[in-house]
């Protein structure tokens, strides 16, 4: 049962990889990478249940948090061309 869900997650990851490789724009890749991150969270959670280690859910949550923060940082860079505040203020 968990193996079926895991297979689904792995197939999704593979397809997301193809989408990330294909692009063509940076935003297409970011979309695929964001999807891949969510799937990693699910993969860890499902694997935890599969091998009888539900404590791994803690890890899954940390991954979700990191994925979110990394995504926002990436977008900030892509949008403003740097991580500094100078450009942000210029935008306003």
């Amino acid at each position: 049962m968990f193996a079926a869900a895991m297979a689904g997650v792995l197939v999704t990851m593979a397809l997301a990889l193809v989408a990330a490789a294909r692009g063509p724009s940076v935003f297409d890749r970011l979309l695929a990478i964001n999807l891949f991150g969510t799937k990693t969270v699910l993969l860890i959670a499902v694997t935890g249940f599969l091998v009888g280690r539900p404590e791994w859910l803690d890890l899954a949550l940390v991954y979700a948090l990191i994925n979110f923060v990394a995504m926002i940082a990436l977008l900030k860079f892509v949008r403003f061309g740097s991580l500094g505040h100078d450009d942000l203020d210029a935008e306003r």
Binding site: L17, A20, G23, V26, R29, F36, G37, N67, A70
Partner: peptide, 11 residues
């Protein structure tokens, strides 16, 4: 794009 994909590598 390569930097973004390295994120996937780490995950």
């Amino acid at each position: 794009a390569a930097a973004l994909l390295l994120g996937i590598f780490s995950l």
